[in-house]
């Protein structure tokens, strides 16, 4: 075989592989496309102002409306406020804690205790969410004697923590050592170097990590069933049971009269999560140091 034909052959093989890779990645997009199609086409009907302004209707009211051919009377306001309350509390707990652990890990590479913390962070990241729900049940629901938004937020905090820790750690590790040294060489305290130089310099990466952690836990259902339980009214009390959008979706699934609300709620959840991811991308790009 001469030289040029073997090159030809290699080129042809290259091309085939490239086409195959393209084909399979398209193939992998098909489920995503169908999910989007399903959620949008079935969800848009009930995706109206009511969804945002009214609480979940009773099964009876929904049945009446359906038999009259009316749209379902009610929305998911109680789920939205619940999600805001629970996720908001979880952000309040997990962000400072995650920042501190991430700073510690970035600054103490190679130390034995840091290695242990890092290993535990990995374990936590792989922990099934139902197990985390059970832990939050045992730690918070049991001692307090009641299901609560607080208990739900503890579960979500545990889920968000490893993601925030990792993104903080990785971001800080990527900053040049000389920022830290230059700050300290000006006579600054370590605390001021961390909070006035390092965290602002790594803001893009850290903030992106936080947004992705939020979008990851927004759709969590199982751990909330064991902790926040659910509620049919709007309230902002963290010691009382609260609802959340994914919890409502589960309720709707179990009630044939409310089944139509599944899709509009899912659509809302998807939109919020896409938005968060989109903002995360923009922030990551804009704040590159």
């Amino acid at each position: 075989m001469n030289q040029s034909s073997s090159i030809e052959q290699r080129k042809r093989k290259d091309k085939t592989i490239r086409h195959l890779v393209g084909f399979f990645s398209l193939f992998a997009m098909i489920p995503l496309f169908f999910i989007l199609w399903d959620v949008i086409s079935k969800g848009y009907k009930n995706f109206n102002l009511r969804l945002f302004t009214e609480v979940t209707p009773s099964s009876m009211d929904a049945l009446l409306a359906i038999s009259n051919g009316d749209p379902i009377p009610g929305g998911i306001l109680n789920g939205m406020t619940g999600t805001i309350l629970i996720v908001g509390l979880a952000i309040l707990f997990s962000v400072p804690l995650g920042l501190f652990i991430g700073i510690y890990l970035a600054d103490n590479q190679g130390k034995r205790f840091a290695g242990l913390v890092s290993y535990l962070t990995d374990l936590l990241q792989g922990m099934p969410s139902i197990v985390i729900g059970i832990i939050a049940y045992a730690w918070v629901v049991k001692p307090l004697g009641s299901y609560s938004a607080l208990a739900g937020s503890v579960a979500l905090t545990i889920m968000m923590l490893p993601m925030i820790v990792r993104s903080t750690e990785e971001t800080l590790k990527m900053l040049p050592l000389s920022y830290k040294e230059a700050g300290l060489a000006l006579g600054s305290s370590y605390t001021n170097v961390v909070f006035r130089i390092l965290i602002p310099s790594g803001f893009g990466g850290i903030f992106t990590g936080i947004l992705l952690a939020i979008s990851r836990v927004m759709g969590e259902t199982a751990p909330l069933m064991l902790t926040a339980l659910g509620a049919s009214v709007v309230h902002w009390k963290m010691m009382e049971p609260a609802s959340a959008i994914p919890l409502l979706i589960w309720d709707f699934y179990n009630d044939p009269n409310l089944v139509d609300l599944i899709w509009s709620s899912s659509l809302l959840l998807l939109i919020v999560i896409f938005l968060l991811n989109w903002i995360a991308k923009i922030v990551a790009r804009k704040w590159k140091v």
Partner: peptide, 12 residues
């Protein structure tokens, strides 16, 4: 005071 090899103004 110290000046380093790589110029390192604080980026933010």
């Amino acid at each position: 005071g110290m000046v380093f090899q790589q110029p390192n103004p604080f980026p933010t």
